[in-house]
Design a protein around this nucleic acid. Structure first.
Lengths: 113, 113
DNA sequence: CTCCGCTACCATGCGATACAAGGTACCTGC
DNA sequence: GCAGGTACCTTGTATCGCATGGTAGCGGAG
């Protein structure tokens, strides 16, 4: 899968905030996030990516965690966005749109030559 | 500038193809590319980024180079996109649009909680 | 009861790449 | 000649996604 390599680079910086977006208003646990992202084109990822990422978000105070028992299987650590997390997400969303606009403009400029 | 850090990550993977887009139908030299990108929101970069990147594109056969004298200053190495480069750019453009759509969808889903 | 497979957590090391910092060389104007 | 701008390039560092591997609880097959 050569084409997948492109997405690996594109994910950089965005994955963090995609997770944050998924946590808005709805607590989720790590494994669930992996599956949720796996259903979205270009965002497929693994636990090895998600857990370090979540740890980082926790260190930065953008998410909080709590343990809950599961009916079937090991206990789950649920992640919830903090107010600071929502704020960071809003800031990123604005940056992301600026960035997209710029890239689109450049890509289009090379459309015909 | 903390906000700039976000763009540093976002540029990953896209910068390469933004350069390729700038080279469509119009040969340019490294220093010129730095200045051209500097005028675009979120794509500001430096020579230390561009030259390794151009060397990579050359190794991969996506661009070709030729030296030209300058009327004022040192000679310039001009970069031109190959057919393979244009093809890679087209492929990336499609991937980029898929990716953008996915990210937009996720970011919007977290808009209201 | 034991083994296998699934869920769920986590840590460690690697690879790709943007960038900072520094170096060389040419040209123009003082 | 030397200061400053243009133009090229290299080396080292930081970031972050991911591959890999390890722990542990639960349920079903043998």
């Amino acid at each position: 899968m050569v084409a997948e390599k492109v997405f690996t680079q594109l994910r950089r910086g965005t994955l963090e905030f995609c997770v944050l977006a998924l946590l808005q208003g709805e607590p989720r646990y790590g494994f669930e996030l992996v599956k949720a992202l796996g259903e979205v084109d270009g965002l497929v990822t693994t636990e090895g990516t998600i857990y370090p990422l979540l740890a980082r978000l926790r260190r930065e105070g953008l998410v909080e965690t709590s343990w809950r028992e599961s009916e079937s299987g090991p206990p789950r650590r649920y992640y919830t966005s903090t107010a600071e997390g929502s704020q960071a997400l809003a800031a990123f969303t604005a940056d992301w749109q600026r960035f997209c606009t710029s890239v689109d403009k450049i890509l289009q400029s090379g459309r015909r030559g």
